[in-house]
């Protein structure tokens, strides 16, 4: 099993803080710019990196990620090219966990055994596949575990006490708690609800628990990182990229810096969270 994820969360625990988990779409706004953004994320302060693999029909995503996916597809990204970016990232970074997030069909069409072999050798650590609940574990989750890749499970407010053990079965790496019922980029949950939810999930697993959906500002990220093992920021980051593009939707000189600037601010928030939490 790839152990970069476990190593990274152990390190975060030793530092006494929650981590910053970032999500950016590979190929958005173009393949090279998305790679420049990806390459600079660890230096900007990302502790764990989710790389988005676009799908034409992202049924759990809000408008921001939908549009990013379309930009990426128009730029010619494919799952094969995404794994190439993983390989290039690993040339300069051997420690930061990389997790692919997307939908099942592109992986199914790639061919599951071939995908797992290529993903592992490229240096991917795990995957989050939105439309594969535990009922479909035979498809990818179990083959992924055998191939030494983590299968990170999404858990939602609708996942009740009875279902949590089912949903968490065969999960590894960490648990991604979706803090709201809704699509990506929608409103955010209150910090009190998040703390309770994280406690609820922790009663069923020893894996780190990261929280995402609706986290937009350094303050929100800090609040989440105070109670969870990691705060996931996606739509806000993609918004910052989108905001830097020219009228034709092309990258400008500001694009990479815009993304890294927001990550640095979020990382700063997350890093100060536990200190201020202790004083509060």
């Amino acid at each position: 099993m790839s152990d970069r994820i476990a190593t990274r969360f152990a390190k975060l625990r030793a530092e006494g803080r929650g981590g910053l988990v970032t999500f950016t779409m590979m190929g958005d706004p173009d393949i090279e710019t998305s790679f420049e953004i990806l390459k600079g994320l660890p230096a900007a302060g990302a502790d764990v990196i989710e790389i988005g693999s676009p799908f034409t029909d992202p049924m759990a995503d809000g408008p921001v990620i939908q549009v990013a996916g379309l930009r990426a597809l128009r730029a010619g990204i494919t799952l094969h090219k995404t794994l190439d970016l993983v390989r290039r990232f690993r040339e300069s970074d051997q420690d930061t966990p990389l997790i692919l997030m997307g939908y099942y069909n592109p992986i199914y069409i790639y061919g599951v055994p071939q995908f797992l072999e290529d993903a592992k050798s490229a240096g991917l650590d795990g995957m989050i596949v939105v439309d594969l609940p535990s009922e479909e574990d035979q498809e990818l989750c179990i083959p992924a575990m055998s191939a030494g890749l983590n299968f990170i499970r999404l858990v939602a407010p609708t996942t009740d006490e009875q279902r949590l053990p089912v949903a968490l079965n065969n999960s590894s790496g960490f648990v991604y708690y979706i803090s709201i019922t809704g699509i990506t980029g929608a409103g955010s949950a209150s910090s009190g609800n998040i703390a309770d939810a994280v406690e609820r999930v922790r009663r069923h697993t020893d894996l780190p628990v990261c929280v995402g959906f609706g986290i937009k500002t350094p303050e929100q990220a800090a609040e989440v990182a105070r109670v969870a093992d990691g705060a996931v920021v996606g739509s806000a980051l993609i918004d910052s990229i989108a905001g830097s593009l020219d009228a034709a939707g092309q990258a400008t000189a500001d694009t990479v810096a815009a993304a890294h600037g927001l990550v640095a601010a979020l990382a700063d928030g997350v890093r100060r969270a536990r200190d201020s939490g202790a004083n509060a």
């Binding site: 609940p133 009922e135 999404l154 939602a156 609708t158 979706i178 019922t181």
Partner: peptide, 20 residues
């Protein structure tokens, strides 16, 4: 019982919807 017609069918949905 899992909704399969041969290899077709199934339940490929987000966890949020699974309980529903």
């Amino acid at each position: 019982d899992e909704g399969h017609f041969g290899i077709y069918g199934g339940r490929y949905v987000a966890e949020t919807l699974m309980p529903l």
